[in-house]
Structure formats: structure tokens, C-alpha cells
């Protein structure tokens, strides 16, 4: 493959696009280290006039965010919510996707169509009926309830992504495995899963980000009591009802970003390969 073939024009366009994309995040980062009254008075770009004048920077916003009461507990809650919700989604989706890709059973295509159709159902529509069910079952305000909710919301996309990836694995591989006497379970654990690490990793990143960044689902099903509230819910209460102290959110955004960033970098070598999952056959 000729990598050098790309013209300088393409490079320029890519660099420009990246810059435009990064600019708001850069602004956020700069704002997060500026004092509140500076943020209120002037735009973040004013620091560019004198970027090395360190007196205009402060870590006060970070200190206030990290020092706020209950932040540690909220961080732990977020992990408690996100990790099982991610693992469960991947686990269930992998089983389902494998069945959709390699098993023959009546109504398979119709079922798959239903799953794909669920992708377009806005989750807001489900809030009231599910919460009503939860309060009857005693699941409202519990971690089990929110795991189930996140798994349910994540599954359609997860199954769709993985089915296409499993479907693109060579059929010969499974045929010869079955001829050699492998059970479907063995074929799944020994063949499909190891070959699908890129797809599983990218799905893991997606799902982790969605659950970690979620505010609405947590607020509705868990409520805001300190023993269960995730980081997003806790951070949103730093701001007053009229939006006072919004400068704290700039720092809060980076605090909340730290864990997903770590997950992303840990899994990123799989990411590009995985995101092409199912897009190209062969």
C-alpha cells in the first residue's frame, strides 16, 4: 500500500479539520485553569496574548471540584455503575450476535430486524414505563436497576455491531471446527471471541463512554442520594439553579473525562480496526 500517495492538500484538510474539532476542547481546558472573574470578564483566547504568564492560571477550579463533599463516593458509584453495565452488555451482545450470525433458527431475520429497529427508539420514551416497573419491583434507586437499564439501552447497537463483525469471519473456519466435533459453545469461546477482540474492544469503549457520561438515566432511575448518585449527577449540582458557578463545570469536565480517556488509550490500538467491524467484508 502506498501511504505516501496522499496529497499535501489532503493532509492540510485533515489538519484543519482536527484543529477546528480540537478548538472548543482547548478553550475548555484553558477556561478550566483560569480564575472565575477572568472567565466572566474575557474569553479564553485572551491568554494567548501572553501564554507564558503563569500568574493568570490557577488550579482553584480543580481544587473546588475535587474538594466538594461526596466526590469520592460519586466516583466510586460511577465505576460501580459503568463497569458491570459495560461487561454485561458486551457479554450478552456477543452471545446474541453469534447466534444471529451463525445459527439457523426460524424467525432469525425478523428478530434481527426488530433489534435493529430498536436502535431508533429514543430512550426518553421508555423512562416512565420502566420507572413504573422498577418502583413496583423495588429496583428504583438500586444499582441492579440501572445496570439493567443501561444494558437494555446499549444492546441493540452492540448486537448490531457484533453480528456484522461475526458475520464477516470466514465460514470455512466454523465449518471445519464443527466437522472436528466442536460444540457451538466451543466455537464461540475458542474461535469467535478471540478473533473479535478488536470489535469487542471498540464496543467496550463506546458502551463505557455512554454509561460513564450518562446523566439522564442515572438521575431518573437512581435519583441523587449520595450513596448511589454517579459522578455526572454529583457534578451537575455544583452549578446553581440559575447557572451560577458554571466555571466549575470546565474543571469538572476534565475530571470526569480522565477515566474514559484512560480506557480509550488502553484500548485504542484495537479501536480503528474494530470500528471498521463489519464495514468491509473479507
Amino acid at each position: 500500500m502506498e501511504r505516501e500517495g496522499a496529497s499535501p492538500l489532503v493532509h492540510l484538510v485533515i489538519i484543519l479539520t482536527c484543529l477546528v474539532w480540537i478548538l472548543p476542547t482547548l478553550g475548555l481546558l484553558v477556561s478550566s485553569v483560569r480564575p472565575a472573574h477572568d472567565v466572566a470578564a474575557t474569553g479564553w483566547w485572551t491568554v494567548l496574548r501572553n501564554p507564558f504568564d503563569l500568574t493568570q492560571y490557577t488550579l482553584q477550579n480543580y481544587r473546588e471540584v475535587l474538594g466538594a463533599a461526596g466526590m469520592g463516593r460519586a466516583f466510586v458509584n460511577s465505576l460501580i455503575i459503568t463497569i458491570p453495565a459495560t461487561l454485561l452488555t458486551i457479554g450478552i451482545a456477543a452471545f446474541a450476535a453469534f447466534a444471529f450470525a451463525w445459527f439457523q433458527f426460524p424467525g432469525r431475520d425478523a428478530l434481527f430486524l426488530v433489534v435493529v429497529g430498536l436502535l431508533v427508539v429514543p430512550l426518553q420514551m421508555t423512562l416512565i414505563p420502566i420507572l413504573r416497573l422498577y418502583s413496583r419491583l423495588g429496583l428504583a434507586g438500586t444499582f441492579v436497576g440501572i445496570w439493567l437499564a443501561h444494558v437494555g439501552y446499549g444492546l441493540p447497537f452492540a448486537i448490531y455491531l457484533l453480528r456484522n463483525f461475526f458475520g464477516s469471519l470466514p465460514a470455512d473456519l466454523f465449518e471445519s471446527a464443527f466437522i472436528d466435533g466442536a460444540s457451538p459453545l466451543t466455537a464461540f469461546f475458542r474461535l469467535a471471541l478471540p478473533l473479535s477482540v478488536p470489535a469487542l474492544a471498540s464496543l467496550g469503549i463506546f458502551q463505557f463512554l455512554w454509561v460513564w457520561n450518562d446523566l439522564l438515566v442515572g438521575l431518573i432511575y437512581l435519583g441523587g442520594s449520595p450513596s448511589v448518585a454517579p459522578l455526572t449527577v454529583r457534578l451537575s449540582t455544583l452549578v446553581g439553579s440559575y447557572g451560577q458557578s458554571w466555571h466549575l463545570l470546565t474543571a469538572a469536565a476534565f475530571v470526569s473525562m480522565a477515566v474514559p480517556m484512560a480506557v480509550f488509550f488502553a484500548l485504542q490500538r484495537y479501536f480503528v480496526r474494530g470500528i471498521l467491524a463489519g464495514a468491509v467484508k473479507g
Binding site: 423512562l127 438521575l219 435519583g223 449527577v233 451537575s236 449540582t237
Partner: peptide, 13 residues
Amino acid sequence: TGTRDLPAVLTTR
């Protein structure tokens, strides 16, 4: 529990 989206959250609950 504080939320600036109170009407929606309260109506739902």
C-alpha cells in the same frame, strides 16, 4: 437531589 431539568425529571417520576 438538585437538577436544573426539574420539570422533566419530576413529571417523569
